[in-house]
Design a binder for these strands. Structure first.
Lengths: 195, 195
DNA sequence: TTCCGCAGAGAACGCCCGTTCTCTAGACTA
DNA sequence: TAGTCTAGAGAACGGGCGTTCTCTGCGGAA
């Protein structure tokens, strides 16, 4: 087996297991078995569990944002639709049976105090999402796109954690509705006001 | 030493250590040392670590809500002030140097998938906070206090997690501002509209 | 064919953790 | 005072984990 393929299989297994059960609950041997890779190969690809965890988080960050903003691009006709499409995607995600909250919030809660790498990965992820949302609010006719983006980000994180703990994806619907109101309130009046 | 005092000292140590570093990162022996209690006594008070963890979460739930809503009672003159006072308290909490996010979100991320007791404690906590906030919105002249409470709860959780990961308590300020807008939008127009 | 190198399987190692057990010393009772 | 009971200190135990090591067998080069 190729080393590149081993890396992919390990990261796939890591994403599945770490996200579902938590990082410390999954041992390297279980991971190795799930990936169908020898322990020797595992430590050739990733020098330590710490390294594998950070690689998992970095890859998940990229994929998660790509999936979200691909959806936003595809499902919104106007700049006004785009922030709301974020919450539509969130609702679908939260309704997924495998959904178990935000991988970064979870791993930050589990290891953020103990591992700088994990804490930094969580910060980087949230920062990157923040900048994406800022791009969306900057495309609107609003008085303060920075403040609006900060507010929408709160709704995103709130919806994800609330849906995770309660098990009810409706949180994303509530967040969408709140976002609608906040966007309307921030929009500079240049015609009819949407309800 | 009294058994009751041992319980208190153990729960105090548990709260300090589990919250700061995470549950699995703190061993029973370190906890025993921090509490100044013998291992034998520890296992007399709590039959297992699981039991101690759940007791820690239950006690923290009660204390956290009591502190929050005592502040709300004290720092708000009118029913309209009360929801906003929630976010003032949150801001002060998030600015505390020991702040490390929501103990329930953190422990849910760490152990929620593996321990039913932890997951249930997190659900119970969020449910209880939800009901408190519902009491606040029901005291307002709003069209749909249930929907508004759900929205405010998203802002609460979003502010806590964002402040925890970014390390910046300003998230609570943004949440307060968003709450103001959402409350205004939900208020039935019966006079002057507040800015 | 023979030799070399590498990959896989899994045993081994050292450490840590949750939990239990043992030993000792002191306090209380008759 | 003698006997008993209890609490504390910490050793011990069993198991799991991250990581490394060993052994075996196969594939390719000379």
């Amino acid at each position: 087996m190729d080393e590149d393929e081993a890396r992919v299989r390990l990261l796939d297994a890591a994403e599945r297991l770490f996200y579902r059960r938590g990082i410390q609950a999954v041992g390297m041997d279980e991971l190795r078995a799930a990936a169908g890779v020898s322990l020797k190969r595992l430590y050739q690809c990733f020098g330590s569990k710490q390294e594998l965890v950070e690689a998992y988080l970095r890859r998940r960050d990229g994929r998660w944002r790509a999936a979200l903003f691909a959806y936003v691009d595809e499902h919104s006709a106007t700049p006004e639709d785009r922030p709301l499409a974020v919450f539509d995607w969130l609702h679908a995600w939260c309704a997924d049976p495998d959904f178990r909250g935000c991988a970064f919030i979870n791993s930050f809660g589990e290891l953020g105090a103990v591992s700088d790498g994990v804490a930094q990965a969580a910060r980087d992820h949230k920062q990157a999402v923040h900048e994406h949302i800022l791009d969306l609010t900057r495309a609107l006719c609003v008085t303060d796109p920075v403040a609006l983006a900060a507010q929408l980000l709160l709704l995103v994180d709130g919806a994800i954690t609330t849906a995770a703990i309660s098990g009810d994806p409706e949180a994303a619907r509530h967040a969408r509705h709140a976002a609608q109101i906040l966007i309307a309130a921030a929009t500079v009046p240049s015609g009819a006001v949407r309800s």
